[in-house]
């Protein structure tokens, strides 16, 4: 293929975008679709700031060729909250003091979503292992791990706090 109009299903909504094979998913999301919540941190799959969910699984948008994500379900940070409020994971991050500069937060929150979808009651060790591909330079992870534990409890409780 060369240049084509492709459909991307982001946060449940279809977007038609002109793509070329060399375009990365992160650039299509940020520049073509305008969802800039996905962050470019390293372009190498080392920091996890660009994490999005592809069919529910966490992937690096910076190492994904956009063409391979055509017609597949994508979730970005903008799609997590239902309506104007915060998703329980986002609320837990806010309450626990797990957000400092906030640049790693979208990726961290989405990776947490993937973790809790597959393991609703993770141990501290399981949380740290699942998040180990997401670097944070500000927090030392202490309050991030606390936030994930708290979010897990809230979600197990049906979203009630």
């Amino acid at each position: 293929m060369a240049k084509e109009i492709a459909t991307f299903i982001v946060n449940g909504q279809g977007y038609e975008v002109i793509v070329e094979p060399h375009m990365l998913l992160i650039d299509v999301l940020r520049d073509s679709i305008g969802l800039v919540g996905t962050k470019y941190g390293c372009g190498a799959g080392d920091c996890g700031a660009c994490t999005v969910l592809l069919e529910g699984k966490p992937v690096f948008a910076c190492l994904t060729l956009a063409v391979t994500a055509r017609d597949r379900s994508l979730t970005t940070i903008e799609g997590l909250a239902d309506g104007a409020g915060l998703h329980p994971i986002q609320q837990a991050f806010v309450d626990a003091g797990a957000v400092q500069c906030g640049f790693c937060t979208p990726g961290m929150v989405l990776t947490t979503k993937a973790l809790l979808d597959e393991n609703p009651e993770p141990t501290r060790g399981e949380i740290k292992a699942f998040l180990a591909g997401n670097l944070c330079r500000c927090t030392g992870y202490v309050k991030i791990v606390e936030a994930v534990e708290s979010a897990a409890g809230i979600l197990r409780n049906g979203g009630a706090r």
Partner: peptide
């Protein structure tokens, strides 16, 4: 709670490259 963190958790915060 800090005033700036909710927007950072939702991806609404705008950094320079955004």
């Amino acid at each position: 709670a800090r005033p700036d963190v909710a927007a950072k958790a939702t991806g609404a915060a705008r950094f320079s490259a955004d």
